[in-house]
Amino acid sequence: MDRMALEDDVLLREVTRFIYREARLQDDHEYDAWEALWADDGVYLIPANGEGGDPEQEMSLVYDNRSRIALRIRQLHTGKRHTQAPRSRLCRIVSNIELLECEGDTIRVTANAVVYESNARGETVWPSRNEYLLRRVGGELRMSLKKVVLINNDKPLYTLSFLI
């Protein structure tokens, strides 16, 4: 294995650990620890209607800047976010993690995810293709973008109130 490939491999392992950790924090509803994974300029984007066009122009399911991510977390913490009281029971599988490019200090990563949700309504499956922009902040990886493209987002969707 040449040196580049080796460095890639080390980075891939670090990114994979980061994404698995993020998945576990989401499944466990560890809201604060999950919020701490965001960079200050973080954008959380869940497009509607396919890949989604320009989120500045078209409706997305979620298009949160960093302060709206914080608001989302504060709402969950009130205990009166009825749709998460009781909380959904969650189990997600994240796979196909690939590093697509490294530019400057930013790494573009893609992964596939399938989330099983169980709540009073029933069981719902949420399959998605995810994209991350990760950046090192004080030595630690942080998300500056997480884009979750649900593969059924062009159809009517049930309430999505857990962190995906």
């Binding site: 509607a48 976010r81 009825h82 999505l160």
Partner: peptide, 13 residues
Amino acid sequence: GSAGFLLADDGEM
């Protein structure tokens, strides 16, 4: 919408 601060709770009701 599905993830809305308001409508997700209306939907639950």
